[in-house]
Design a protein around this nucleic acid. Structure first.
Lengths: 154, 154
DNA sequence: GCGAATTTGTTTGCTCTACAAACAATATCG
DNA sequence: CGATATTGTTTGTAGAGCAAACAAATTCGC
């Protein structure tokens, strides 16, 4: 034999841990997301998709509000916005009411791209939730939200 | 009012997306994991914990086998092992049968630390799964595994 | 058995996420 | 108006992750 047939791996207590299942599933889902977009010749991360949706649905919001909505630091947001702006998807408009903030908005190209992206995301979602009924999927999302609310920092 | 009472955020289709719920939950669970360890004066990531468990339960395994088990590239593993080795938790022993590979093993200090870590992980798990019954938790893990198997890269 | 192909661990280079601290510009509070 | 807050940015640090190249060791093919 070329390789000894791979000794069965002992994962100890890991398979009983919710956090472990979450981490592995998240990793696989991320890979599927990336593969879905790559096959369509597009480039986008799940985080960027979420950001674009938030800006589209809440046009004029500030970077601070967006950072809070995304749960990341405002300094982390800067290079991400730079990239999306460089791709022509969004603009940092001057706010008419507050000279410190930027009023974020999608460009027409950004809107068009987002529509394309949303179609890919739906296909991706359909695949990863493939084995589950619609009711099961909703139940899973509900359980995940319950876990998220229970896991508060502190 | 100091701040206009925070306009209700429109998340569009995001709340119906499994991937979105997964990402947010994973992020909150990670934060809870870090906070649990920080409060106990320990420093460890979920990935490092998983690595230590795998090495403990499969003493002598190679870096390639470990990287495959973790689903990461072997070059990604190197700095992680370096750090854990520098902390005195594990050793890269010479393999008696294959001069290319390292036989990974925990040190006695590593075993002791892992026992401590496992207690913290159980407390963390208890909190994040707090709102769920034992049966619900098992069901959730099962659903997550189903999603993970459905999300294959390509 | 010996040369060719493969495997393993490492290094280097690159990208991305993420936070903290400091800073200038602007708003707001007293 | 002066002191304090907030916002966006820059810089520094740390970590995860992949790809490509490389030396050492093993295995394959003949």
């Amino acid at each position: 034999m070329a390789r000894p047939p791979a000794p069965p791996l002992d994962r100890g207590l890991l398979p009983s841990l919710l956090g472990y299942a979450l981490r592995r599933t998240q990793s696989a889902v991320f890979a599927d997301f990336a593969a879905t977009f790559a096959r369509a010749g597009e480039t986008l991360t799940p985080g960027e998709f979420g950001l674009l949706v938030l800006v589209e649905r809440n046009a004029g919001m500030s970077q601070m509000a967006l950072a809070r909505a995304l749960g990341i630091d405002r300094s982390t947001l800067v290079p991400i916005l730079n990239r999306l702006q460089a791709r022509g998807f969004l603009l940092r408009n001057a706010s008419p009411t507050d000279g410190r903030t930027h009023a974020l908005a999608l460009t027409p190209a950004g809107e068009k791209a987002l529509a394309r992206f949303a179609r890919l995301v739906r296909a991706h979602e359909k695949r990863i939730a493939g084995g589950l009924s619609a009711a099961e999927t909703r139940a899973l999302i509900e359980l995940l939200d319950k876990v998220r609310r229970a896991a508060r920092p502190l």
